[in-house]
């Protein structure tokens, strides 16, 4: 089931991608250099996968609190083009145990899956931040 823990990133402009890359000291020109992207067959720069990681973790944190997040395991499925806003979708697997499994998906504006995986959350009080 979808538990409404949705979060949408800002539109990932070149300026936002550059800021994220600078914060991470990301050396990959695929996030900054359109001519490099053209040389490897990409139509333009793409956002770092780390943005999907932070966005999905934030979506989970909005529901369960950042301190409750124990494990994040995400696979990057397709590039996030400049200008796109990523929608984060969560499905919570109900369990009686101490750990809750959250199925997390980052979806592009065209509906394509950008990243997905699981976030394990310690069962604490919900909707705390």
């Amino acid at each position: 089931m979808n538990d409404g823990g949705e979060f949408r990133t800002a539109a990932l402009s070149a300026a936002r991608i550059a800021q994220f890359s600078a914060a991470m000291h990301d050396p990959n020109p695929v996030h900054l250099d359109p001519s490099f992207c053209a040389s490897i067959g990409l139509p333009g720069i793409i956002a770092p996968g780390g943005i999907s990681v932070v966005a999905l973790a934030h979506a989970v944190a909005l529901r369960f609190g950042a301190a409750a997040i124990r494990e994040i395991d995400l696979t990057f499925r397709s590039p996030v083009p400049e200008g796109e806003s990523i929608r984060c979708e969560l499905d919570v697997e109900e369990t009686d145990g101490p750990t809750i499994t959250v199925l997390a998906r980052a979806v592009g504006e065209d509906g394509r899956l950008r990243a997905d995986g699981t976030v394990l959350v310690e069962r604490m009080s919900e909707t705390r931040r």
Partner: peptide
């Protein structure tokens, strides 16, 4: 990790080339 490494020498050591390589998965345990 690469935020904290002193330089980009890790790329050659790990065989990463940005014209051929993509990050495909990330796992984090807090």
């Amino acid at each position: 990790f690469f935020s904290f490494l002193a330089d980009d020498s890790w790329l050659a050591l790990a065989g990463i080339r940005f014209d051929r390589s993509l990050a495909v998965r990330r796992r984090i345990r807090n």
